[in-house]
Simulated scan of single mutants.
Amino acid sequence: MEAIGQFIPLILIFAIMYFLLIRPQQKRLKEHKAMVQALRRGDQIVTQGGLIGKVSKVKEEDEVEVELADGVRVRVVKSTIAQVLNKTEPAEG
């Protein structure tokens, strides 16, 4: 019985770590994945490097083509997109 009493603080610390650190991180990862999957042409984005541009083409792989300025297009890996500033409305049809 005494051995179980010694493990209770360790179990409590693990439970607190799970609810304060691991669960919120998993939630953020899921939200980021949904944001990246919902990217469309015309969305204004910010990359993790701080570049702001407009999505000009969404590729099948894990890439998007982003227009940073007139005629300046770069390929960006989807996972490095930090934020979507302006969403484009879906075309009705």
Rank of each mutant, 00 (worst) to 15 (best):
M1Q: 07
E2R: 11
E2C: 00
E2S: 15
G5R: 10
G5L: 14
Q6P: 02
Q6H: 12
Q6N: 13
F7N: 06
I8A: 10
P9R: 02
L10P: 02
I11Q: 04
L12S: 09
I13P: 01
F14G: 12
A15Y: 08
I16C: 06
M17Q: 01
M17Y: 12
M17F: 12
M17H: 04
Y18E: 00
Y18A: 06
F19H: 10
F19N: 01
L21D: 09
I22D: 06
I22M: 10
R23D: 02
R23F: 11
P24S: 06
K27T: 14
K27C: 03
K30G: 03
K30V: 02
K30I: 01
E31V: 14
H32P: 01
H32A: 13
H32N: 11
K33G: 02
K33N: 10
A34K: 11
M35C: 01
M35V: 05
V36C: 00
L39Q: 05
L39H: 02
R40D: 13
R40E: 15
R40I: 10
R40F: 09
Q44Y: 08
V46F: 05
V46W: 04
Q48T: 13
Q48W: 04
G50V: 05
L51W: 14
G53I: 09
K54H: 06
V55E: 06
V55S: 08
V55Q: 03
S56Y: 01
S56M: 01
S56H: 07
K57R: 15
K57C: 05
K59D: 13
E60S: 12
D62K: 12
E63S: 05
E63G: 02
E65G: 03
E65V: 14
E65A: 08
E65H: 11
V66K: 05
E67H: 01
L68T: 05
L68Q: 06
V72R: 12
R75F: 11
R75L: 14
V77M: 07
V77C: 04
V77N: 08
K78E: 03
K78W: 03
K78H: 05
T80W: 06
A82E: 13
A82L: 14
Q83W: 03
V84M: 06
T88H: 06
T88N: 08
T88C: 01
P90Y: 02
A91S: 10
G93Q: 09
G93L: 11
